[in-house]
């Protein structure tokens, strides 16, 4: 152990020991810790009005247990219910910051729709975002259309924008649901790369449940992406904007 007499070697060895210990010992006890934190969560969600559809996942996508839950299954709930659930879960002992699988922004429910929804609808009336056959990869030719959509959405950045993917009725409904959601997520990714913040975009896959009005459910023209302005964040005046008493 002669090498440990050099101070820097010893310090680095200590650092490595810390990392190894944290990963092995901390990692080994983490599942039980996460389980214990997660135990009272379903009851709290149900009490806050989430029923049993809203679930909290206490692990990262790669499976590592975490104290920071990701909440799923709140697609149909109002913003105030989501906020109540979030507060109830975050108030439980041991729970870290929470996030929603489909977007985080907490906003007011009542609003007058902004013109940008019409702008985007007008863009998409004439042209469509195309995908490669039975894949969620956006066709290269649709890039410029997405540029225009991003530009049209930019004035509405205070609002929550829902991206819904639709398919026609070919294939199984399960696969259609998954594909429509993947396509909506691909559009969200493309918009985020063009500077629209991830937090204001919600995605949902509708499958073939909502065909275009006046079209047969099997019509390929039902394959589409729709944008809806869900709600707007309240405008909070900054101190500069607010006239003082004097």
């Amino acid at each position: 152990m002669e090498f440990l007499r050099k101070p820097y070697t010893a310090i680095v060895a200590g650092l490595i020991a810390c990392i190894v210990l944290a990963y092995t010992v901390g990692g080994a006890s983490a599942p039980q810790v996460a389980q214990r934190i997660a135990a009272p969560v379903p009851a709290a969600i149900a009490e806050a009005g989430g029923g049993d559809t809203v679930r909290a996942r206490f692990s990262l996508p790669n499976g590592w247990p975490s104290r920071h839950p990701v909440l799923t299954g709140a697609e149909g709930l109002s913003e105030s219910t989501r906020a109540r659930i979030a507060h109830a879960v975050a108030a439980l002992p041991g729970v870290g910051g929470i996030s929603w699988a489909d977007g985080d922004l907490m906003v007011e429910q009542h609003f007058s729709p902004l013109h940008c929804q019409d702008d985007v609808a007008a863009l998409l009336r004439a042209r469509t975002i195309r995908f490669e056959e039975s894949s969620a990869r956006i066709d290269a030719a649709s890039g410029s259309l997405i540029d225009e959509v991003a530009a049209a959405l930019r004035p509405c950045l205070g609002a929550v924008i829902r991206i819904s993917g639709h398919t026609d009725r070919s294939g199984s409904e399960e696969a259609n649901l998954a594909l429509s959601r993947e396509r909506a997520e691909a559009v969200r990714g493309a918009l985020v790369r063009r500077g629209i913040p991830n937090a204001v975009l919600r995605v949902e896959g509708m499958g073939s449940a909502h065909p275009v009005e006046g079209l047969e459910p099997g019509d390929p023209a039902n394959r589409r992406i729709e944008f809806t302005v869900v709600s707007t964040a309240p405008l909070v005046p900054t101190p500069v904007d607010t006239p003082g008493p004097r």
């Binding site: 810390c18 990392i19 210990l21 944290a22 010992v25 990692g27 983490a30 247990p65 975490s66």
Partner: peptide, 30 residues
């Protein structure tokens, strides 16, 4: 952040405090 990384942060903090204290008490004299 996974739990083992939170453990790591705490351990590194404790390690840094320990190193600092050790240096302040014994390291300066020699």
């Amino acid at each position: 952040m996974p739990i083992w990384m939170e453990v790591l942060v705490l351990m590194l903090l404790a390690y840094a405090v320990g190193l600092g204290l050790g240096w302040a008490i014994w390291g300066r004299e020699s």
